[in-house]
Amino acid sequence: MDPVSFIVKKGINTRIIGNKLKYFEIMSSTMDDVIQSGLNGENEGLTVVSENQTHGRGRTGNQWVSQEGNLLFSILLRPPSEIVNLLQPMIALSLQASIKRYCKLNVDIKWPNDLLINQSKIAGMLFESGTTAGKLEYVALGIGINVELQKVPQITATYPVTDLQTHTEFFVDRNELFSNIIHDLDTAYWDLKLGFDPIQRWKDELKIEGKMVSLNSNGIIITGLVLEVNDEGGLVVQCENDNIVTVMTGNLIERKH
């Protein structure tokens, strides 16, 4: 499988995201590199790609198991504060569209920001931000996409894990896929800055309203009926005791009964 260094060396013609690319065969964490760059004053758009990570991580402190042959990258953004809450829906929708178009697959978004094929996880996103005296300085966006797993990770997960190559009828070229994803992310981010609001489209793609779910939110298990997804991206849940709570983050399991 061709290393992603090919497209990194060639470069990608974008406005912001991907305007500067860094490539590593192996590193501790692309997120750590981007965060340090954010602290050092690097311009937004920096994208750091690695074939492998020794300390990759996912949401809520979970480990992201890194394997060669996949796409592992992080992006430095410096968005205006008024669009920060729109980043997660925008990124999820953009990645979904890129993969659907390139791989010709049906891809679902699982709240809040995982991508699934046939109820198996193929991609995840991580957002971390830095502030100074209450002012937002940067957002670090981490993305991991399972393109072709050498072996299925033996980890405890809410959803099983799969990869794109398993479901795609042709060879998935990581350089082409990565280039498509970066172009789409750059366009989506530009549109966001110009005023596009992705919330309703994201809500529609979640298909979670009216479903029974169980959530682990900061160690608290919440079970109930999803009444709606609010404009901040939280799930409004009617619990089994009829209390109504809003959950902003957590690991979700959709219940069949």
Rank of each mutant, 00 (worst) to 15 (best):
N52L: 15
L227N: 10
D186N: 07
E209C: 11
N19Y: 12
G144S: 06
N40Y: 11
L105T: 02
L39A: 10
T47E: 03
I12C: 01
W64S: 14
L71T: 03
F24L: 13
S120I: 09
L206D: 02
L71W: 04
E68Y: 00
T158Q: 12
G144W: 05
V247A: 04
I109G: 02
G41L: 08
A123K: 08
L164K: 03
N113D: 05
N106G: 13
S94C: 09
N62K: 11
I26N: 04
K104Y: 01
I122V: 14
N175W: 06
I182F: 13
N218F: 15
M27A: 04
N175R: 07
G18E: 09
G224H: 04
T166F: 10
D204M: 10
W64V: 14
L136E: 03
F6Q: 10
T168E: 02
D197R: 11
F24A: 09
E44A: 01
T132Y: 11
I199C: 06
E169T: 13
S179G: 02
K135H: 12
V139P: 03
Y138R: 01
Q67W: 08
V48W: 02
V48P: 01
P112Q: 09
I122P: 01
T158W: 13
N113W: 08
C103G: 10
N40S: 10
V161N: 00
T156G: 12
V245R: 09
A123I: 14
N52C: 11
A157G: 03
G18M: 13
N19K: 15
I109R: 01
I145P: 06
Q36D: 15
L95A: 09
E228S: 15
S120W: 07
F196K: 04
D242L: 13
T156W: 12
I17M: 12
L136H: 02
T54A: 02
P112K: 07
S50R: 13
L185W: 03
G58A: 03
V49P: 00
I208C: 04
C103N: 08
D242P: 00
E205V: 05
I182T: 08
R15V: 15
G69N: 06
V236W: 04
G142A: 10
E44F: 02
G233K: 09
V65S: 10
L136Y: 07
M27Q: 06
R174W: 08
W111I: 12
K100M: 13
R57V: 00
V237G: 04
Y102E: 10
S129Y: 01
S120Q: 15
N180F: 10
R174A: 09
W64Q: 13
Q36C: 08
Q154G: 03
L177I: 14
E232I: 06
S28P: 03
G224E: 07
G61T: 14
R201Q: 15
G41F: 07
D33F: 15
T187P: 00
E148P: 00
